[in-house]
Design a protein around this nucleic acid. Structure first.
Length: 505
RNA sequence: GGCCCGUUCGUCUAGGGGUUAGGACGUUAGAUUUUCAUUCUAGAAACAGGGGUUCGAUUCCCCUACGGGCUACCA
């Protein structure tokens, strides 16, 4: 097994938006594949036609693209093991299910869903298996003749695996170590549905085998069905090719307990999906990390450290670093509660560490979406350098930089008016004149400003805030003389004059 | 209920038979920033409980408790 080329797959069901945990599973798959110079496959598990959602597959592809986790093989990229949608592979599965029936490891079952519901309701701990299968309608309990008749009549039926009696199924999970199950406790899972589609259980085994998957990562919620899959690999005669399993810890709600769901996001005010997801049926929009203003690098970074660490104090990792350092044996076993505060911290760190140039396009979009005209991109770059340390999410760039591009929309008048004096009016009137002659550099501006203050016998501290409000409109932003320098002489003077009329009105 | 998995500061985690149990987010207090944020410094804050094993357990074993997952012709 170890000499085989590493091949992993992400196998989502196209039923809606892509959850945090889903992206983390993709990430771990991707990191593992790249680290071992293997292939990363995207396989769409659309075997449940009743749950199919229009646009979900495209959405998943878009998410992967945004994250930069491009599959080597996928429904759109194709590949040597196409097709990559299980619905298009439908015809492949039946023969394996029939093979299992022939071998005595599976059987036909004719019970209707209604009958089974009734049993579940009436019999405590009912499960279709050892204890009850003889009393139900299937090819184990019925005579060969009866079964043939039912089959000939086209009676709807499923194929179920026959769990063996008194056996222990165990395997070595890459994250959890030794895990074992008693077969008597596992029910006879459906392998092939009445509509001819395989269930996940059959499809995942058949496709992992056919696609030569070497390592299978999935959420911990799959652990209970692992024995079914193990047995299938064995019964189908493929045991030597079975991938190594790794069941990832779950991502939990920040408060209370349980798996994180999109409802928690709505309830607690943070995104759960990677990108906005619009449900055409309900008209409901579920917000995403991307639209909220997360950088994909930060998103990946925070996901990577949710359940994994490299053993050092390092917390900020680039994708390349993650590929280099990732290791399954450093993935923790316990579920992790999602912490949105820390998620934002990751984003702020990434913004701070990013070059203005790499932020430019996204910042420009943020500003233009708000109606701010960005005419000069070099100017924009300088603005970004001035303010990126104070932005946590990308939309913060609007609030933090709009005044660099247009007159303040409003002035924090309460911060200046109560203490305003005629002397200050005189100061700023003279400042306008004085400024006109200054070489336009922050430190020269500051010197001129302070000299004039001294001459007028006004404390500099009394003048700094009004000056800031004049240029910015509020009590925030970088050093005021840096702002003035960037704004330019003409604009600065204009803003002083404009604000003066407001302050003295 | 049954089965499976798990359990170190509020949260994410490091560590591992002998440590002042480390880091990060958040939080508190200071410093810097004539605004705010950043930054810096300091502080509070954890080994679920009970039995073993051992000279010595937070670390290894067992039990209990608690938490989570699964228990569909969904994935």
């Amino acid at each position: 097994m170890s000499d085989k080329k590493v091949r992993v797959r992400f196998a989502p069901s196209p039923t809606g938006g892509l959850h945090l945990g889903g992206v983390r599973t993709v990430l771990f798959n991707y990191l593992f594949a790249k680290k071992h110079h293997g292939d990363f496959v995207l396989r769409i598990e659309d075997t449940d036609q009743t749950r199919y959602v229009e646009g979900a597959e495209e959405y998943i592809l878009d998410c992967l693209k945004w994250c930069g986790l491009t599959p080597d093989e996928s429904p759109v990229a194709g590949g040597p093991y196409a097709p990559y949608r299980q619905s298009e592979r439908k015809s492949m599965y039946r023969k394996y299910a029939e093979q299992l029936v022939g071998q005595g490891h599976a059987y036909y079952a004719f019970d209707t869903p209604e009958e089974l519901d009734k049993n579940r309701k009436e019999i405590p701990n009912f499960q279709y298996g050892l204890a009850y299968r003889d009393g139900l309608r299937n090819s184990l309990s019925l005579s060969t003749h009866q079964v043939a008749e039912l089959l000939d009549a086209g009676t709807p039926h499923v194929i179920r695996i026959k769990m063996p009696e008194d056996e222990k199924v165990s395997f070595n999970d890459l994250i959890r170590g030794h895990v074992s199950f008693e077969t008597n406790q596992v029910d006879d899972k459906v392998l092939l549905k009445a509509d001819g589609m395989p269930t996940y259980h059959l499809a995942v085994v058949v496709d992992d085998y056919l696609m030569k998957i070497t390592h299978a990562f999935r959420g911990e919620e799959w652990l209970p069905s692992a024995p079914v899959h193990l047995l299938l690999w064995e019964y189908l005669g493929w045991k030597a090719d079975m991938p190594q399993w790794a069941h990832l810890p779950l991502i939990l709600k920040p408060d209370g307990h349980g798996k994180l769901s999109k409802r928690d996001g709505a309830r607690l005010g943070f995104p759960v999906y990677a990108m906005n997801w619009f449900d055409a049926k309900t008209g409901e929009l579920t917000p995403g990390f991307r639209e909220l203003g997360f950088l994909p690098e930060a998103f990946l970074n925070l996901l990577a450290t949710l359940g994994w660490n490299d053993g050092t104090d390092q917390e900020i990792f680039t994708l390349d670093e993650l590929i280099e350092k990732f290791s399954l044996d450093r993935v923790s076993k316990a579920g992790a509660k999602f912490d949105f505060e820390k998620a934002k911290w990751f984003n702020a760190e990434w913004i701070k560490r990013s070059e203005a140039g790499s932020l430019k396009a996204e910042v420009k979009k943020v500003l233009e979406d708000k109606g701010v005209v960005v005419a000069d991109e070099d100017y924009l770059l300088q603005v970004i350098d001035q303010i990126k340390d104070r932005c946590v999410l990308m939309p913060d760039f609007y609030q933090q930089s709009a005044y660099f591009f247009e007159l303040p929309k409003e002035y924090d008048i309460n911060a200046v008016k109560p203490k305003w004096t005629d002397a200050k009016t005189a100061f700023f009137n003279e400042l306008v004149i004085g400024l006109d002659a200054v070489a336009w550099q922050a430190h020269d501006l500051e010197a001129t400003f302070k000299a004039l203050a001294e001459e007028k016998a006004i404390k500099v501290g009394e003048l700094m805030l009004p000056f800031r409000i004049m240029l910015v409109g509020g009590k925030f932003g970088p050093h005021v003389f840096d702002i003035a320098q960037l704004l330019g002489k003409e604009e600065t003077i204009k803003r002083i004059k404009t604000a003066l009329t407001v302050f003295t009105a």
